[in-house]
Amino acid sequence: MRNIKIMAHLVAGYPDEASCIQAIHALADAGVEIAELQIPFSDPTADGEVITRASQKALDAGFRVRDIWRYIDTAKSLGFEEVHVMTYGNIVYRWGVRSFLEEMHSRGITGVIVPDLPLEDDDRFYAAAREIGIGALPVAVPNMTPQRKALLKSTASEMVYAALRQGVTGRSTDITGESREFLRSLDIPKIYAGFGISSREQVLSLEQFAYAAVIGSHITRALGSGRNAYESVRNAVERCL
């Protein structure tokens, strides 16, 4: 019995709406506890090639930001323990920081992840999330100084997304003693740890150090294979369970 939850990430609208909805079903059927849905953005600076291309493809196919509700409603109806939404600062800013958070909260979203809105919180994103009662997960990285970690801890309240290495999403990661020490040093109850996870060994190596292991580009890569979306995603996830 695995002692860590799985958060599985999908780019909404990729490769197309029907396949993406099937992919959400595949995650639920495989026993994934947490779904993370990314609202595609034209200029995703924290993402590697796989998710950047997937986002562009979804936008080229006509994805509009408020289409995210259809994916969220699907995920909510399938009984995931938590559903999170990830996107970039400009999408939230154009939507309206406060109304974005309020609407996500009212639809039952557990947490939102916006990697380019910094801890200094100049736009009151984290502060508004606290007031509204929705989780806003800042991103922790291994090269943070103790001062930045302290700021992170006060910003994060109880949830944080931890990147297991420096860099953008997608490239494989060796999870070492150092990675685990980094997670421990965050001293935050619910750590969602990711970046480059694509195997059961990686997931299990995070047990006791993270609340959830995040599987991202690995699933999007499988979806890009052109084969049946449901089967590809289910196989890709089951490799990690």
Binding site: T45, A46, G89, P115, D116, L117, P118, L119, E120, D122, P138, V139, A140, V141, N143, M144, T145, R148, L152, A163, Q166, G167
Partner: peptide
């Protein structure tokens, strides 16, 4: 870090150092 409300430092934590 700003010119009025323009500017800022909107990058992921990884680039802060």
């Amino acid at each position: 870090r700003y010119f009025g409300t323009f500017g800022g430092q909107y990058v992921g934590e990884v680039l802060k150092p």
